[in-house]
């Protein structure tokens, strides 16, 4: 045990702590211990395990609450350009990912469209900027913009968005069932 130091509450605590994050190469999954329930009701999965079995840039739902989803995305190489009519958010959970943003001259989506779609070819519009994400960084993907991710090495993104035509559902494969 490491040496301790006095805590404000009167006890003694460790002099230093190690924060455990996970990665594509190093994750340790917990689980549901059922007493009187059905494990499927918890839809228990792990972001890194899902991404480890995904193709680059597949958008695999790991959580869903009516129309809203969280997607695990394996970031590897250069993604297609995508756009949504609403704000989306990307959290870099592992690796380093660059986000390029373009303000579309004309959105292919109606204002109330849900989820993101691919943009055909290069997006037409003004460059908005570029964001360099590392682990733990969160970026806004503004409504009406086109965005493209680049990741030299395999990484993981968690997307806060609305289910769209390219959202993949693999619940039986990714979730604890018993």
């Amino acid at each position: 045990m490491s040496s301790g130091k006095p805590a404000a509450g009167g006890g003694t605590e460790r002099s230093e702590y190690t924060t455990i994050f996970a990665s594509l190469d190093n994750f340790d999954k917990g689980g549901v211990e059922i007493i009187n329930d059905d494990a499927r009701h918890y839809a228990f999965s792990n972001l890194f395990e899902v991404a480890s079995k995904s193709k680059p840039w597949e958008k695999v739902a790991v959580a869903k609450n009516l129309e809203y989803v969280l997607e695990a995305v394996r970031a590897e190489g250069v993604s297609e350009w995508r756009t949504a009519a609403h704000d989306e958010f990307a959290v870099c959970m592992d690796g380093e990912v660059t986000v390029d943003l373009v303000k579309l001259d004309s959105s292919p989506l109606s204002a109330d469209a849900q989820g993101s779609i691919a943009v055909n070819g290069e997006p037409a519009g003004k460059k908005m900027g570029r964001i360099h994400l590392k682990r733990g960084h969160q970026a806004l993907l503004p409504a009406g913009s086109a965005y493209r991710f680049t990741s030299a090495n395999p990484g993981v993104l968690m997307m806060q968005t609305i289910a769209g035509p390219d959202t993949q559902y693999r619940w039986a494969e990714i979730c604890q069932t018993a």
Binding site: D28, V32, D37, Y42
Partner: peptide, 12 residues
């Protein structure tokens, strides 16, 4: 139930 969640785990 008891649900043990480690880094990266997702549960409803």
């Amino acid at each position: 139930s008891r649900v043990t969640m480690k880094a990266g785990d997702v549960a409803a």
